[in-house]
């Protein structure tokens, strides 16, 4: 499948990446190469083969709902680019 610059822009928005206009052509070309690689699978009929999302043959790897464990708030916030009153902050979100 060929890739258009518009598609790249749409993908970039979904992934919250900014592709500047002067980067767009090169990125589209790179994406085209990668998609061409991925496209090697598209010609195959694999409908008889079940998808395998995990190689480990395990199930029910669960933990018990035991006593809660505390984690110090200073440490939780220690890497925050910005924090106020024990909260992480971002520019005002308007819905």
């Amino acid at each position: 499948m060929s890739v258009t610059p518009e598609q790249v822009k749409k993908l970039a928005h979904l992934a919250r990446l900014e592709i500047r206009d002067d980067e767009l052509a090169a990125m589209t070309r790179d994406m085209e190469q990668l998609v061409a690689l991925a496209d090697r699978l598209t010609a195959l009929d694999l409908s008889q083969t079940p998808p395998m999302d995990h190689v480990l043959p395990r199930a029910n790897v669960l933990r018990d709902d035991a006593e809660p464990v505390e984690f110090p708030r200073e440490q939780a916030l220690s890497g925050a680019p910005e924090a106020v009153d024990g909260c992480f902050t971002v520019p005002r979100v308007v819905e």
């Binding site: 933990r63 035991a66 809660p68 984690f71 708030r73 939780a76 916030l77 024990g86 909260c87």
Partner: peptide, 27 residues
Amino acid sequence: NTRTKIFCSCSTQFGAEPNTHVCPICL
């Protein structure tokens, strides 16, 4: 109404001070 969160051992209790029931996993 579990005691701990779905993927980590933080408490689910309602009404605590902000970010006192968080850990590296749920952050």
